[in-house]
Nucleic acid binder design. Structure first.
Lengths: 106, 106
DNA sequence: TGTATACTTAACCGTATGGTTCATGATGAC
DNA sequence: GTCATCATGAACCATACGGTTAAGTATACA
């Protein structure tokens, strides 16, 4: 799922779709307009975001509404923060190591 | 840069490379071994990570050492956290809106 | 009933991606 | 100097991606 979420986010158009779908439910054509893209093009992006669990859609009459779903974003945030913390710990350990080599009073 | 960082991270092999390069500087062949991948294959991934500013490499004798570089990860974390915060604010505003409609004492 | 709207599917196209092999270059060890 | 090692470059391959057009389906509305 991480793979899909990250890949889905690695596209400015899809990030834009997400941002607007986060404000309120949006139709496919409403999403298409500011992107200057065909409807099928937008639909493909929407499918990708759905697969990545970043978007849910539902058909209401003849229009499909797209809403942001934050769960997968949490997963991405979790992974990134994990690595940042681990990195910080490594830096600390390295600093300690250097301090040890240099002696306790330097 | 965000595009490149996210795309670079959207691959399990590249994430693995990053994790190991974060512990200590690693050579191309050391990276290749556990991946069961050819050297040129690994090199391509390393180039991608470099372009995304997630890795720095340097030639020492005949071996190329790869080290993790956390700056781009910070950028990703920043973007994700931004959206999560914005989403939370939207939820709050929605809750307030509902409360208002339902009346002050419900 | 007929027509316009909103989406969907299918087919296609160019380019990028993830991988390979094979040949070459550069460095280190004896 | 020779030989092994580590990395690189070039060419190639299959598949995925981001987009299109054209045709079809489903719903709303007069």
């Amino acid at each position: 799922m991480l793979d899909r979420a990250l890949a889905a986010l690695a596209d400015a158009n899809r990030r834009d779709i997400l941002e607007r779908a986060a404000v309120r439910p949006v139709s496919i054509s409403a999403l298409a307009e500011p992107l200057g893209m065909s409807l099928p093009g937008v639909l493909k992006h929407v499918r990708v975001l759905e697969e990545a669990d970043l978007l849910v859609t539902s058909k209401v009459g003849r229009v499909r509404l797209c809403e942001f779903r934050p769960r997968s974003l949490d997963e991405v945030a979790g992974w990134v923060e994990d690595r940042r913390r681990r990195w910080d710990r490594l830096l600390d350990r390295f600093a300690t190591h250097v301090a040890d080599r240099e002696g306790p009073s330097t």
